[in-house]
Amino acid sequence: MQENTPSINVSDAIGTSNAILHSFGMTVYDTAKPLVQENKPVIIDFNGIRNLTSAFLHASIGNLMTVNPNSIHLITVNGLANPEWNDKLQDAIKLALNPEKRDAIASELNELFNS
């Protein structure tokens, strides 16, 4: 990642420290999408975020992963304050890149449901 890589601060982009709505995620997606489409690297910076949902991550990072086959190498995420947020991020990326992963998650939840 070069020093002059464009950075999108999520809190600034959505105007709140609560990154919880799908529509907020789409705002970040819309902001970063032109860069990813042009095969340019971009940093998505979560510094300043207090609350984060999987819905937001699916709408933003998950959708960005489908924009360009090279997305995974173009997008850098930093500033995730909570280790569980990183798990949610990984789930969003896996689901976007590999929809079959969803079947494994469904199976795990079925066990919970029927136990």
Binding site: H22, R102, A106, N110, L112, F113
Partner: peptide, 22 residues
Amino acid sequence: VKGNSTKKGTTQGGTGLSTILR
């Protein structure tokens, strides 16, 4: 409750109910 969601487009998510059940 099994953790599925009907998020628009390609997005998934919404595990709130399954987490509360857990």
